[in-house]
């Protein structure tokens, strides 16, 4: 999963994560993330991982760096799977 998100961000924003640009870099503060790109990335994550963000979840600075995006998607998948297990 992590490589998919990393590849997407690298291709969409024409950057490369490395020692000088680590994965926990705040993409907004560094000027990498733009408005259209952010909305597109949300669409990509929702589609690729079959998840759905709510407004409440998204306001907590969760999608600001590759590290946080990855954590958030993982957590979201886990809780959705847990929900699915309970209901089955």
């Amino acid at each position: 999963m992590s490589d998919k998100i990393r590849d997407y961000i690298e291709q969409s924003f024409l950057i490369e994560f490395d020692e000088s640009f680590p994965e926990d870099t705040d993409l907004f503060k560094e000027g990498v993330m733009d408005s259209f790109g952010y909305v597109q990335m949300c669409r990509f994550l929702e589609k690729e991982f079959d998840i759905r963000f709510s407004e409440k979840e998204i306001t907590g600075n969760v999608l600001t760096s590759l590290t946080r995006i990855r954590e958030f998607v993982l957590q979201k998948k886990r809780s959705e799977n847990a929900g699915a297990d309970t209901s089955s």
Partner: peptide, 15 residues
């Protein structure tokens, strides 16, 4: 920026 993107826009405005 369609209605389906309200959550994403919310995140963006938050920033």
């Amino acid at each position: 920026y369609g209605p389906q993107d309200i959550a994403a826009l919310t995140g963006l405005y938050q920033q």
